[in-house]
Design a protein around this nucleic acid. Structure first.
Length: 471
RNA sequence: GCUCCCAUCGUCUAGCGGCCUAGGACGUAGCCCUCUCAAGGCUAAAACACGGGUUCGAUUCCCGUUGGGAGCGCCA
């Protein structure tokens, strides 16, 4: 059997961390099994679905590099298919019209809850005499729209889910109620469309979050009613916030795009996400290639995982190490631009980034700490100036400037003797001489080695900055 | 409330009955390196939720308890 999997987000928000991992696992599984990865937009919630979110999800997927082989399909464009299936169930007596009002439903739920039962539908309309079936789904003309269509679920027996991650899960059919498959406005509902779509798209494996685990038995009932074989299921554990609650906006950035804008590499985000729930021995860092080769659904754990931004950062820094200085220039460019800095000298920028690359864990951080190289005027940190640019130190800097003016170029070779000599002469520690220079050149007390900074800046910039700091 | 799922260091996890004195990673702390900050190296603290079984032997298997998560929508 050929492997066909799908990622089916609903466009009611941006692509978030949890969705991205689900998409990744589907993608990895498809790649490894040489199957097909399908993207399906579940937009039957016309109230909340928007075109913007759809685009945002597509953008997120593209940025991550999770390319799809088929789609994107939109459920709103597949209405005839759903209606056809509803009609079939209706004709076979496996679905029925329900004229209960939302108000009555609410009362029934409340009463059930009060009696200690599940807040399910009491099957009133199913038990009353059947209304003329007709083509409820395809009703068009002057027909009233004050009814919806419910699935007539089996009253007895048990339904068992075969899950690649959870094993077998048996649920008593008594726990399942007659879910609505077609709303009174004629649109189908999730549990129905997902089944019809997965069948008609010939999905072989349904890999999704385990918030859908409870829905699975009802869906299996629908497969059976429709006379289709059910796909193989694999329910992934949830991703939680630091408070062990389901990850939400309250936990900070949850949209994939936010991570792109914060300077994370798509490969790093995916690497981190992959390790949330999946592992391969002690390995932490994976290339996409390694992941597609190594990923197995059998190695996915069952327990929910807490999203740890700190570890993500570390993973990102590890991935950052794999790029050359030259590649870093292009990666960091948008983040320099965000600060209003344009890259005029590519080689210079590459050398600047080289000196800082161990210090920034995201591209945003990296660009921020490298910015002083590209800025014309140094931005001074007040505390640093107060501590290190005292009158006494300024005298020292003046002396340094004079000596530097006499050398042809700045390098370890020319710089070291000069500073060491001054250090001895004034009976100072190297730190007492390095810090004033550092503040004068970078504006802060933190930077790469001072010799390196000076060599990269070059004689002209160094002297200019020194002069300016002395004012 | 009912049903389902889950349970190893703070966090991500390895472990699939003896190899466990429970391993790795992030983070934390200390030391080394050192012109600052990182990076790097070394070291340390840190976990099998609890109680019953099964077994010669349980982190590993079973049951219960507790804790957490999810579902119970004319949302997906």
């Amino acid at each position: 059997m050929s492997v066909r999997v799908r990622f089916a987000p609903s466009p009611t928000g941006h692509l978030h961390i949890g969705g991205a991992r689900t998409a990744l696992y589907n993608w990895l599984f498809a790649r490894r099994e040489q199957g097909v990865f399908i993207l399906r937009i579940e937009d039957t919630d016309t109230e909340r679905s928007t075109q913007e979110y759809t685009q945002s999800i597509l953008d997120g997927m593209s940025w991550l590099g999770l390319t799809w082989d088929e789609g994107p399909f939109h459920q709103m464009e597949r209405m005839p298919i759903y209606r056809e299936h509803v009609d079939r169930l209706l004709a076979e007596g496996k679905a029925y019209r329900c004229t209960c009002s939302p108000e009555r439903l609410e009362e029934v739920r409340k009463a059930a809850l009060a009696a200690g039962r599940k807040p399910t539908y009491d099957r009133k309309c199913r038990n009353e005499e059947r209304l003329p079936a007709g083509s409820a789904a395809g009703r068009t003309k002057n027909e009233e729209r004050n009814f919806c269509i419910r699935f007539a679920a089996p009253l007895t027996g048990t339904t068992v889910v075969h899950d690649m991650i959870r094993g077998e899960i048996a649920v008593d059919n008594k726990e399942l109620d007659d879910l609505i498959i077609l709303r009174s406005d004629g649109t189908p509902t999730y549990n129905f469309t997902v089944v019809v779509d997965d069948v008609t798209m010939q999905i072989s494996h349904v890999i999704r979050g385990d918030d859908h685990l409870n829905n699975t038995p009802r869906q299996i009932l629908l497969y059976q009613a429709l006379g289709y074989p059910a796909p193989i299921f694999a329910h992934l554990p949830m991703i939680l916030g630091a408070d062990k609650q389901r990850l939400s906006k309250r936990h900070g950035a949850t949209s994939v795009i936010a991570y792109r804008d914060a300077g994370y590499l798509p490969g790093a985000l995916l690497n981190y996400l992959a390790r949330l729930g999946w592992s391969h021995g002690d390995q932490e860092i994976f290339t996409m290639d390694e992941m597609t080769r190594l990923f197995r659904l059998e190695d996915v754990g069952k327990a929910p995982a807490v999203f740890d931004p700190e570890k993500l950062k570390w993973v990102n820094s590890e991935h950052l190490k794999k790029y050359t200085d030259d590649q870093l220039v292009d990666l960091a460019r948008p983040f320099f631009e965000k600060q209003g800095l344009a890259i005029v000298d590519r080689g210079y920028t590459a050398r600047a980034l080289h000196s800082e690359r161990e210090r920034g864990k995201t591209l945003d951080e990296l660009a921020a700490i490298t910015a002083f190289y590209l800025r014309d005027a140094v931005t001074f940190d007040e505390a640093a100036v107060t501590k290190w640019l005292t009158a006494e130190k300024k005298g020292l800097l003046k002396e340094i400037a004079e000596r530097l003016g006499q050398v042809s170029d700045l390098s370890d070779l020319t710089l070291k003797p000069i500073l060491e000599e001054l250090q001895k002469q004034h009976n100072l520690k190297l730190v007492d001489i390095a810090q004033p220079i550092r503040v004068a050149l970078t504006g802060t007390t933190v930077s790469p080695g001072i010799f390196e900074v000076m060599a990269i800046l070059g004689k002209e910039r160094v002297l200019t900055r020194l002069a300016r700091a002395l004012q």
